[in-house]
């Protein structure tokens, strides 16, 4: 089913949200992804991914309090929902399983 599997970028965004805990809104998410992965991320792309994840129920959002920055406009903070958390854990366990089944020789000397 389409809803349960996460895309690579979706996963990264969700993990970033989780790692930023209370401070996750579009701009910080962008910055964090850029910092970690080193690739430049368009705000519009992040927005559209956030929107998609929200409609899938993976993440939730609420508007913060207005501040002096951004011309008084509120930020929309994101957090990973329980469904999202389950999906992330599922993804991680899939990966771990795969990692565990790889014989040592394959990555010998690379790790």
């Amino acid at each position: 089913m389409k809803g349960t599997n996460l895309g690579e970028f979706e996963e990264i965004v969700m993990l970033t949200i989780a790692s930023l805990s209370q401070q996750a809104y579009s701009v910080t998410i962008c910055d964090e992804i850029e910092r970690i992965t080193g690739r430049s991320v368009k705000l519009g792309v992040v927005h559209s991914v956030l929107n998609r994840l929200e409609s899938k129920g993976m993440i939730g959002s609420h508007l913060g309090d207005p501040t002096a920055e951004r011309g008084g406009r509120r930020k929309r903070f994101f957090e990973v929902s329980n469904t999202g958390k389950a999906a992330l854990i599922a993804a991680k366990s899939q990966r771990d399983q795969l990692w565990n089944s790889i014989p040592d020789v394959v990555f010998n000397g690379l790790k």
Partner: peptide
């Protein structure tokens, strides 16, 4: 509200780092 907020935040950031021209243009593009 939040879209516009994000854009303005970026705009101000660009204003300081890249100058007004770049900020204006990238705002429009965004």
């Amino acid at each position: 509200e939040d879209l516009q907020g994000d854009l303005i935040e970026y705009f101000e950031r660009n204003l300081q780092t890249k100058g007004p021209w770049f900020a204006q243009i990238s705002y429009v593009l965004e």
